[in-house]
Simulated scan of single mutants.
Amino acid sequence: MTLTKSISLVALVTGLLLLIPLTAKLTMANMLWTAEDFVAAGIMLFGAGLTFVLIARLGNNNTYRLAAAAAVGAGLLLVWAQLAVGLVGSEDNPVNLLFGAVLAVAFIGSIAARFQPRGMANAMFAASLTYVVVTLLALFVWPPSPDTAEPQVRLANVLAANGIFAAIWAFSGWMFLRASASSSNQNRHLA
């Protein structure tokens, strides 16, 4: 598929996904999305889709593409969760800004690896480790203040939810590692 067709498909899927909250807004009185929410969601969804298309084109196998999908999905979910409810306490808790370090590690690591599978694996494992460290820092070094924390959210829930996010980054790293192994096996067979 050409790049133009891929971008058009991303735009179409973004539009279709935005029909879900639009339908909810039109049919449910308690749907509180504003025009800015729709624009932000559209930018995030289209940006994630475009990022995936560009990265996936650099890989030469489906394992690489799956790893790229997991990494882009983890990044999208991280940003979405931050904007919607926050990852520690509420979205107003400034300690949540530390999670930007996870995205920075993944992005800078990917650029430094030149999007090669082995380097991408290292970048995603580093992002997963950064996620764990930031979660522990946010919870235990700079705990959320009572005015920014949701009282009904238990520590176990926060740890479990953030553990799932870290696991998605680690899964992406593992898949990039597998893509690296299959790429080197293909190169050996060609030689």
Rank of each mutant, 00 (worst) to 15 (best):
V39M: 12
G119L: 03
R57W: 04
A40Y: 07
Q82V: 00
A35G: 06
V72Q: 03
A81R: 07
A41D: 13
A123D: 06
A41E: 09
D92I: 08
V85L: 05
G49L: 03
G75N: 08
F99N: 06
G109E: 10
F99C: 09
V39G: 07
G47H: 11
N30Q: 13
G73V: 09
S90V: 06
V72T: 07
N96V: 05
M124E: 12
A29C: 00
N96W: 04
G86P: 01
N60G: 13
V85N: 10
R65S: 05
N30D: 15
A69R: 07
F46Y: 13
F46R: 08
A84S: 14
Q116K: 15
T63E: 01
I108A: 15
A68Y: 05
V72A: 05
L98C: 08
A74R: 10
R118Y: 10
G109C: 13
Q116A: 13
G49R: 04
F115D: 00
F115P: 00
G89M: 10
G49E: 02
G100H: 12
L58V: 03
A67W: 05
P117Q: 03
R118P: 00
D37A: 13
S110Q: 06
A41L: 13
L50V: 14
F115G: 00
A71Q: 09
G75R: 04
R114P: 00
F52V: 01
L66W: 11
A123W: 11
